[in-house]
């Protein structure tokens, strides 16, 4: 599989996916009107990655904003990761970053953590 890197826009996040290192990164804002279209590609890559994952898969999610349309797609991403994790071939942690006073983003991480079985680590970062 090739490395994938998508540049951020005012409404969509940066995405880095390095299948050789088992590294998946989503960073920035995710507020597109049509989230399904944006996340479709990432879900397809994950599907392929799941056939032959690395021993360790590191997922980094650092969102500044996301809309409710994206929230479902992000859950789909986590569920795809959960599917890979459940097969047992890879150790996986989802790192969920939030600005230290952003209790809404911390709570959003907790919502996902309660739905998917992949281990979550919620990490506070200082405000920019």
């Amino acid at each position: 599989m090739d490395k994938i890197s998508i540049e951020p826009t005012p409404k969509t996040p940066l995405i880095n996916f390095d299948p050789d290192k088992g590294h998946i990164e989503i960073r920035g804002r995710s507020i597109p009107e049509n989230s399904l279209e944006f996340y479709k590609e990432l879900l397809e890559w994950l599907d392929e990655y799941g056939n032959n994952p690395q021993a360790k898969t590191n997922v980094e999610v650092q969102l500044e904003y996301f809309n409710t349309s994206s929230s479902k797609c992000i859950l789909d991403v986590f569920k795809a990761l959960e599917g890979i994790h459940k097969k047992g071939g890879t150790e996986m942690v989802i790192h969920w970053y939030y600005e230290e006073d952003d209790e809404d983003m911390l709570e959003a991480g907790g919502d996902y953590e309660a739905i998917v079985t992949v281990p979550f680590e919620k990490i506070a970062i200082e405000e920019e």
Partner: peptide, 11 residues
């Protein structure tokens, strides 16, 4: 605005 308020309003 405080970062929290700003984010809430924006969201």
């Amino acid at each position: 605005e405080k970062s929290k308020t700003k984010k809430r309003v924006y969201n």
